[in-house]
Amino acid sequence: MEIPIELVVSLSAILFGIGVVGALVRRNIIVILMSIELMLNAVNLAFVAFARMHGTNDGHVFVLIVITVAAAEVAVGLGIVISLFRNRDTTNVDDVSLLKW
């Protein structure tokens, strides 16, 4: 069965959109982190689909690098959230507002 490339790219765009909206709208830091991960996964899906379309390997290599970097990024992000939680007992971004204007 053929899956048209448009479908896959649309799915990736929808996932990316959900990720962007989630990162902007949600107030819980953990949920924001998950939304950002969703954005990166949408990127991966797009890369794999395009690599298949073009028949080159560049997209696959890119996906591997993105997965690795995303893992490192999340590790650091969770570390920052933990150090904040120890000081403030909160994971809500609205409570994190000492610095303004």
């Binding site: 990316f16 990720g19 962007v20 990162a23 830091i29 924001i32 982190l33 950002i36 954005m39 990166l40 949408a42 990127v43 797009a46 993105v66 990024e73 650091v76 992000g77 920052i80 959230v81 150090s83 904040l84 000081n87 403030r88 971004v93 994190v96 507002s97 000492l98 610095l99």
Partner: peptide, 20 residues
């Protein structure tokens, strides 16, 4: 803490957009 958190969220969000 807050500075790191803001920089991280914005930075990760920006690299997601850049990657797309």
């Amino acid at each position: 803490n807050e500075s790191a958190l803001k920089y991280f969220i914005i930075g990760a969000f920006a690299s997601g957009i850049l990657l797309y």
